[in-house]
Design a protein around this nucleic acid. Structure first.
Lengths: 229, 229
DNA sequence: GACGAATTAGACAAGAGTGTCTAAATTTGT
DNA sequence: ACAAATTTAGACACTCTTGTCTAATTCGTC
């Protein structure tokens, strides 16, 4: 049997599968125990490899940590950009489409395993290893916020929204759609799908009450728009 | 000289001053290094006491950690309730008064040293010591959110706001006024006063665009209110 | 100033964790 | 099937941290 088996096999088979298993297990242990509290024996056990194999692949603990952060950063950034690509530039139903976008943001980027892990590591180790997270900052928030803001600006230009500053609007959008989830996030929990949907729904409705200009806005705002023109 | 000198004196003089200095230094070290990474030698050095004195006061590392969390929890909860007491129930200028409230929330409860420390410890150690933070959860968010929501309900009852669910409105208020500060928070930084004021100002304006009903609302909403009646 | 309490400095034992090594076993690639 | 590469298991040396102890010193109270 020369078949390369997926990393779901335990213990993992093959050089690449072992590497993935090590990084994956290490991510979990670093998040759970912190960098200082994580030990190589535990990571090796959870990865299903020997301790020496961990060293064979990564040299030392710090290099393993760097590899973990790199992996998470890459995957999270990819996930965010893929989700931004689904932003509703030409919405059929603005409210429903923005709710869908907010839910996808949460499910694909924030509440998923990678998102939770990266956020946790930034919070716990970010100040101790600033250079390590600088790339995340530059490739992550440094590019995603302008990209999201541009999408909101486009909606404004298309007559759907009345916003003054797309950057502020983008950040307030996220603040609103996640308003009811912050305590859960702080405690490291994962909100249920219902909770995500509810927070997104309430948040988008408030956002559109403040900024919405067209169909899918409420009757009051609808009358205001007519009276304003 | 039998004068009790304040804990600003280094090394601290007197039993109580030493206890305060130890807990204070430990808070900083636990936040900076994490629980596992914090060592008693470092805490003792930063407290200006001997290592044995740390043990004399607190028995062991875990008990010291518990004392730190208890202190922070107590002070943060007191700070929040004191700030909620300044909520503008009868605003002269709703927008300005809500901005003032948001700024005070940030300065007294979120961005101050205690708030930052407690938040950091919850994020880094909360999952490992859930029973330790249960009290914070119950006495903190479990009581502050209903209290803030009640204040917003009162504003609604007074005709200032049109909200459906005061609990949701309260959470969205906080999400909005801090929308532009989240990256700074995540990285453990402290926003400047200007940044706090700007985020609060933008957030309150959006909040009032969505929910405001009376004076201090924008012209558009003012006309909507007149047209609505 | 006397006295008891608290603190300090230094030392110790024990355990935990890191990284390295050796030799045997297993896996992989041809 | 075989050789090379990788992994494993076990051991080791070293450092660091924790908690504890002793004796001297300092502090606080009367």
């Amino acid at each position: 049997m020369k078949l390369h088996v997926s990393p779901d096999t335990f213990p993992p088979r093959g050089h690449e599968a072992k590497r993935i298993s090590i990084v994956d297990a290490a991510a979990g242990v670093f998040c759970r125990e912190g960098y200082a509290g994580a030990n190589i024996d535990l990571i090796a056990a959870e990865a299903g490899v020997s301790r020496q194999t961990v060293y064979n692949h990564h040299g030392d603990k710090e290099k393993l940590f760097v590899a973990v952060v790199r992996d998470l950063t890459e995957r999270c950034n990819a996930g965010i950009f893929a989700t931004i690509a689904t932003f509703p530039d030409q919405p059929k139903d603005l409210e429903a489409d923005l709710i869908g976008f907010a839910v996808r943001l949460n499910q694909n980027c924030i509440c998923n395993r990678d998102g939770k892990f990266l956020r946790k590591l930034i919070q716990t180790e970010g100040e101790r290893y600033p250079e390590l997270f600088a790339e995340w900052l530059e490739q992550g928030p440094g590019r995603t916020w302008p990209a999201i803001a541009a999408r909101f600006a486009r909606l404004a230009y298309g007559g759907y929204l009345a916003i003054e500053d797309p950057d502020v609007a983008a950040r307030q959008f996220l603040g609103l759609v996640n308003a009811e989830l912050q305590t859960t996030f702080m405690l490291g929990g994962t909100p249920s799908e219902d909770e995500v949907l509810q927070s997104a729904t309430n948040g988008v409705r408030t956002f559109l009450r403040a900024f919405g200009k067209r169909r899918s806005v409420t009757s009051v705002e609808k009358q205001a728009a007519l009276a304003g023109t």
